[in-house]
């Protein structure tokens, strides 16, 4: 076991973890933050996307020990008193159906817009290539990201 310290959604945690523990399992099982979902095992789907030291990453492809000393934001920590503009936009634009890909999609999209506020529709579509959704056909997700970019 290895001790790690992380700040997640503004709160500091020190935990003993097995080196092989995936960051996503640390978040979901050790910290009981189950908003971050798992939908594949080949780093393709993006359901587990979180922010690690300010960057969108797939937490299924990071070991918890690699995150030692890092600052993480998960979907539970995105809203700050009120909904984040990306959350609001997903609601307004019907950007979700079953909701399972939604946390990862919102976390990925929030970074896209932060890094490129003037984002075009084509850039949104390209920027979401690491996130799979089986319900929406992406159309309303793209609309949501466009709305949030303007917010």
């Amino acid at each position: 076991m290895t001790a790690i310290n992380v700040v997640v959604n503004g709160k500091s945690y020190t935990r003993e973890v097995e080196p092989r523990l995936l960051l996503v399992d640390f978040i979901r099982d050790t910290l009981s933050l189950t908003g971050t979902n798992i939908a594949c095992d080949t780093s393709q789907c993006g359901a587990c996307t979180i922010h690690l030291d300010g960057q969108a990453v797939k937490s299924c492809t990071v070991l918890a020990v690699q995150a030692d000393g890092s600052t993480l934001t998960t979907i539970e920590g995105l809203a700050n008193g009120k909904l984040h503009p990306m959350q609001q936009a997903f609601w307004d634009q019907h950007g979700l159906q079953c909701g399972y890909c939604t946390p990862g999609m919102i976390m990925a999209a929030a970074k896209l817009v932060e890094e490129n506020p003037e984002i075009t529709e084509a850039e949104i579509r390209h920027g979401l290539e690491g996130n799979l959704c089986r319900c929406t056909g992406y159309q309303n997700i793209v609309a949501a990201v466009a709305q949030a970019a303007k917010a």
């Binding site: 539970e76 909904l83 909701g99 946390p103």
Partner: peptide, 14 residues
């Protein structure tokens, strides 16, 4: 939607 967009979905695996 409010529960889904805030990571509060009640999926079995949770």
């Amino acid at each position: 939607d409010p529960r889904f967009i805030q990571g509060r979905g009640k999926y079995v695996a949770n």
